[in-house]
């Protein structure tokens, strides 16, 4: 693990009624690190991601991001918008009434970026996602792959300190998925962004992440550091 913990989860627990979906999970993630949460459906990995984002409230435990305690004592201290997060949802959640540029602009104007700077940032993000020509296109007029790129661009346009990916590539074919993942990894490394990536695909996890956290029934089963040399050779 590189450097100090950028994200720290300390005995984070989430229950729905009598069912404990995240059970006293503790994990440190270093700045710039890419961590994959791997596990079968219902193992609690998406809930853990939503807890980090502040979209769910933990019942117990603490969550720290960049040295700031954002959740503790069964409540969220910082709302999602104050956590400096980019999130790519499984169903992408592109705002259908706004163009791609409109989607990005909403994010930037919400965090108070002046209009002139917004234009530049939007162009930069569109270029990074290689979707410049779709700036004025509505999401439903784009292909699945193009929509994925738009969702990633929207998540990155605010230069988030932490990028959370909730199986955003699950609907893509293997080739497209591999390409997008490689691009995403490059982008994140360039921005020195920390990333948590939820997936149920072991290959995808190993190809993208520095560490793979295996979850089962709400708990961390084990953590593996990816052997890049071995992976590169295969």
């Amino acid at each position: 693990m590189k450097g100090e913990a950028f994200v720290r989860l300390a005995r984070v627990t989430k229950r729905y009624g009598a069912r404990t979906v995240v059970d006293a999970v503790s994990l440190d993630i270093a700045e710039g690190e890419i961590v994959a949460l791997l596990g079968a459906s219902g193992c609690g990995k998406t809930t853990l991601l939503r807890l980090i984002a502040g979209l769910e409230t933990p019942d117990a435990g603490e969550i720290w991001i960049a040295g700031e305690r954002v959740a503790a004592d069964g409540r969220n201290i910082s709302p999602p918008r104050a956590r400096g997060i980019g999130f790519v949802f499984q169903d992408l959640a592109l705002w259908s009434h706004l163009t791609v540029a409109g989607n990005l602009d909403f994010v930037l104007s919400s965090i108070g970026i002046p209009k002139r700077a917004r234009k530049m940032r939007i162009e930069e993000a569109l270029q990074m996602g290689r979707i410049e020509k779709f700036a004025d296109t509505y999401p439903h007029r784009m292909s699945g792959g193009e929509q994925q790129r738009a969702a990633i661009a929207r998540a990155l346009v605010s230069h988030p300190r932490l990028l959370l990916l909730d199986e955003p590539l699950s609907s893509l074919d293997a080739d497209l998925k591999a390409n997008l993942l490689a691009e995403l990894a490059t982008m994140q490394k360039a921005l020195n962004g920390t990333t948590v990536h939820v997936t149920h695909d072991r290959e995808e996890a190993a190809a993208f992440a520095d560490r793979v956290v295996m979850m089962r029934e709400g708990k961390i089963e084990r953590v593996e550091t990816v052997d890049r040399t071995r992976f590169a050779n295969t």
């Binding site: 979209l55 709302p79 999602p80 980019g86 999130f87 949802f89 959640a93 909403f106 605010s158």
Partner: peptide, 10 residues
């Protein structure tokens, strides 16, 4: 999810 995506920044 559309609202949550907004709540992350607004």
């Amino acid at each position: 999810r559309l609202e949550e995506a907004g709540l992350l920044v607004a």
